[in-house]
Design a protein around this nucleic acid. Structure first.
Lengths: 370, 370
DNA sequence: ATGAAAGCGCTAACAC
DNA sequence: GTGTTAGCGCTTTCAT
């Protein structure tokens, strides 16, 4: 293997010359699909090895009109949620010999711009979108690229775009039922995220479903919004919520729209000597690492993010490659991981290794659209 | 803006025809550097707009021998550490109009393969490497691509490769001095990561520096290894360490190689009724979110990861573009964020908003290599 | 200031 | 089987 500093880039021509064949033949052995005489193939392979040749990606992509890379568009790169998702996508991408480009985009303008820039220019073969908010105009634009798009966690209806969703409504329902039935909560509270956030809306709908179904009687104020952060939730609770709880008899049940919010609630409660889960039972969402490491450990709705990422990539890959022509929608369900924050009967702390949560496979229900 | 479904891809030729000029002229207005008559330019721009034209990336890259994308090679995508780093790199990339490819690679073989595959094929212009372990052979291979490589957090010496480092030795030193002087620890312990981990080694060296400098007398076993995980640290402490601590008089000071390890130690201590920080003062590393949300809040060495990522990208970008010819090495220092876990005088919990830690700029010292 | 034409490195008809 | 050749869509001399 010659490792001399070469200033000149190698090309298929050099290999052809070295092996005494034409460039077409070299191309054939590189791509492996056309048939080449065994002996010729060996000569070419030998030549490639000798020259330490590596086909140029751009040229390849240009000829094939295919980059073998897909873009993952996220509103943010920070936080466990996105990491997990990215991990799932990356794993599948690597299995499919595709590359992953991460692209940050917030809001309809940026999202649309990303489509134009990356799909319009052929920089990537497809885009997996985690949309922050939805705006009708943006959606309409997206539809232009429907064959190379997949949208996560946002139901786009009948636009013909692939969708991978999380069933937030049933998740909210399940979390709430758990508080009512197992935690025997007498009062309920829902702590949601920002207004535009669709996850919050669906989880809240599930909350309402459970309330209606059980005939639970809700207090006046049973819905507060936060910005999804620990800090602001803490403040909110301290200022407006804790006092109310302290003044009431009977256990409160709180459905938080994510784990940070749940932790904010819990810490605020504990600071005012409201026992968790004795006086306040709390359920979080996403089952981040925080949930296990906190004390009391946090009951939380686990979303199979990695699996979701994997699925998204595989779906998109198949769509792009024409393996599948019709758009499809896959819905993932979460699973409630029950821990001490909502179950007085559980120990305050399950030691690592003695973990009772079994790693089960997540249930995914598939729905083929017409 | 015509939005008819076009099956045919547009090219520079279509624009040229539409504007009644040659493709060379179109290319010129796209690139903006060559001079074009104002009137012609307008006609071309108008044509591009009308056709909703977007130059093809691959073709461009092929012609220019430049992709405008850089790859970030990480051993893992999970965890706050990598998220923060990635965020920093991404921010700078977006500012520089470059794209970010994330690539996972663990161990020398994969790392080398990534170089070959991505740099050798011209898929990216450069690679930012976060090397997991180091192996002489791999390093040698890297040197081949030194002009398009930057290595983070691993001092490569004089290979001519750009380096962005974290001063782990002085970090370990500072953390240890803090335990000795401010926490008034009577016994010291270092809880490190896996054997191959170079961070652990340097932090430990700093620990030793502090011990020597103060003439502190170390017990027999003052160094344990874990796998950097909360769970296993917890077990290790429970089985081997806590008992020893409980049997001794005087406060223990523990330097943990990361926050998870620190939390494992703390929880194990608390479970055995060893007060933190009263009986055991603990300092973590990385200052992850965990540090603030834990109770007691964790003293931790903050590493300016975003800044580090930004710097890495800018450095690499300039090297690639020939703005800078000599390799450079930049060293970042951490900053110890003092919290309750090592300072009995501090409140158990600093409420959000009342945070005493000021967001200061991180100090970075630059060292130009010969 | 603009155009013609020769690459960039590869793929894919189409011939033989 | 293998070679010839015409693209892929853009950049960039080199003329004019």
């Amino acid at each position: 293997m010659s490792k001399q500093e070469r200033t000149k880039n190698l090309s298929i021509h050099d290999v052809a010359a070295q092996a005494g064949v034409s460039i077409a033949t070299v191309s054939r052995v590189i791509n492996g699909k056309d048939r080449v005489a065994a002996e010729t193939r060996h000569r070419v392979e030998e030549a490639m090895r000798k020259l330490d040749f590596r086909p140029n990606r751009q040229a390849r992509a240009l000829g094939l009109r295919k980059t073998n890379t897909i873009g993952l568009v996220l509103p943010d790169l920070l936080g466990e949620f996105y990491s997990e998702l990215m991990h799932g996508v990356d794993t599948a991408a690597r299995d499919s010999h595709m590359n992953l480009m991460v692209i940050r985009a917030v809001g309809p303008e940026e999202e649309e711009a990303v489509c134009e820039e990356f799909l319009g220019s052929g920089a990537v073969d497809g885009l997996i979108f985690m949309i922050s908010q939805l705006d009708d105009r943006a959606v309409h634009e997206l539809a232009r690229y429907k064959h190379s798009l997949l949208v996560i966690d946002r139901d786009l209806g009948d636009l013909g775009i692939d969708n991978v969703l999380v069933d937030n409504r049933s998740g909210g329902y399940e979390a709430t039922m758990h508080l009512i039935e197992e935690s025997r909560a007498k009062h309920l509270l829902f702590l949601g995220g920002p207004e535009e956030n669709v996850d919050t809306r669906d989880r809240y709908l599930g909350f309402r479903d459970a309330v209606r179904r059980t005939g639970f009687s809700l207090g006046e104020e049973h819905f507060y919004r936060t910005d999804y952060s620990y800090e602001n939730t803490f403040k909110l609770c301290e200022e407006k919520i804790i006092r109310r709880m302290a003044a009431t008899k009977g256990r409160w049940g709180v459905v938080a729209a994510n784990d940070d919010v749940a932790r904010g609630m819990i810490d605020a409660a504990l600071d005012e000597n409201l026992g968790v889960p004795d006086r306040v039972a709390v359920v979080g969402y996403d089952d981040t690492r925080l949930a296990r490491l906190a004390r009391p450990q946090l009951t939380s709705m686990r979303i199979p993010l990695r699996e979701l990422g994997r699925t998204a990539l595989c779906l998109l890959r198949d769509r792009i490659n024409g393996v599948r022509l019709e758009p499809s929608t896959i819905i993932f369900k979460g699973r409630l991981i029950k821990r001490r924050s909502s179950v007085p009967e559980l120990p305050a702390f399950v030691k690592p290794g003695e973990t009772s949560e079994k790693e089960q496979e997540y249930a995914a229900s598939e729905v083929q659209k017409a």
